[in-house]
Simulated assay, not measured.
Amino acid sequence: MRWIALLLAAGLAQAEPTVPNAAWSQAWLDQAYLPRHAALTQSADALASASKAFCETPTPVQLDNVKQDWLITSQAWRAMDGAPAGPMVLERLGRKIDFRPTRPDDIEAAIQGSEINNAATRGLPAMEYLLWGNAQPKLQLAKLKQPERCAYLSKIAAQIASDAHVLDQPWSVYRSELAAENAFFRENLLSEHINLLLSSMSSLQKRMPTAEGVKPEQFIEWRSGSSQAQWLAQWDGMNLALQAVLQRLRDDGASPIANKVQQDIAQVNKNCRNLPTHLAQSTASARLACSKSVATLKAIIEDQIGEQFDLTLGFTEGDGD
């Protein structure tokens, strides 16, 4: 597999890390990664089907169905992005399915030419624009009754499903490699996955602007009004992957570190879960408290978990895409 060769050449870990055994490694994948992939592919398939049905019968009810499936799929993607790993990184799935910022002019031009090879004219952000416009949802039904526009919507949805399913086999191969006689993938498991978690935490902070007077357009998914739900989906994916790390800390006799991380996770939940559905309606102080709690959690992972497991932690915010 191409992605395996790339990962072997990457040299992701420079230190001598803690090496999990095959059973633990595969259990982490089975519990925290593969279910999120399954949720993404299932929701993307439903989105593709709903989009096709809507274009055949473009009614308000059918449009609502597509919007609901888009919300589910987008949150499933955000959960995956909360804790990415080898296959999705090396396939650059984020660029294919979640290219930002949204470029309406490019999308409008693409509708006329039926071109979706440009990353800016495909994926979930492009669908959000077609379904909600620039926060003008009531105007979109009439627009989407135009055959070429609806056909483009359906084509994007089908491409999202196809892109998600590209990872079906790589995830299976990755799982097998974690039990291989050659321990390379297990040796790099903690370093790679925790680095990617840290990168996602940086992304999560960027999704929570903390200044006074921010405009709705500064919040990702402002068109669909789902910025808080999307933020929490990414956080929940991250939190799910962290639970195995906490258990490993306890197994290694580092319960005090695990307990402190668990306390910091609880603080993120306390500060972030009760913000308004539209994050633009939240106060700057509330958003700042949420962002700071994520920063505190990120710091202890970088410092204490990295030291406990003897990991090299040094990915940048751009890694993971």
Rank of each mutant, 00 (worst) to 15 (best):
I4F: 12
L6N: 14
L7Q: 15
L7V: 12
A13L: 08
E16A: 13
P17Q: 06
T18Q: 14
A22E: 10
A27R: 13
W28M: 12
D30Y: 00
A32D: 11
A46K: 10
A46S: 08
L47T: 01
L47G: 01
A50G: 07
F54L: 04
C55V: 05
P58D: 06
T59M: 11
P60I: 10
P60V: 09
Q62W: 06
L63K: 04
V66S: 05
V66K: 04
D69W: 13
Q75P: 01
A79T: 05
D81I: 04
D81G: 06
D98M: 08
D98F: 09
F99Y: 15
F99P: 00
T102S: 12
I111D: 05
G113A: 15
S114E: 13
I116K: 07
I116C: 08
R122A: 11
L124I: 15
P125C: 04
Y129L: 11
L139G: 12
Q140H: 11
K145E: 09
P147C: 05
P147V: 05
R149C: 07
A157E: 04
A158W: 00
Q159E: 13
H165D: 09
R175M: 07
A180L: 03
F184V: 06
F184N: 02
F185R: 07
L189F: 14
L190T: 05
L190E: 03
S191M: 02
H193K: 13
S199H: 08
P209C: 09
T210C: 04
V214C: 04
Q218I: 00
R223I: 08
S226D: 13
S227H: 08
A229R: 07
W235V: 04
L246E: 07
R248F: 07
S255P: 05
A258T: 06
N259P: 02
D264I: 02
V268M: 05
R273K: 14
N274G: 11
L279F: 01
R287L: 01
R287P: 01
K292S: 12
L297Y: 02
I301P: 02
I301Q: 02
G306A: 09
D310K: 15
G318A: 11
D321C: 07
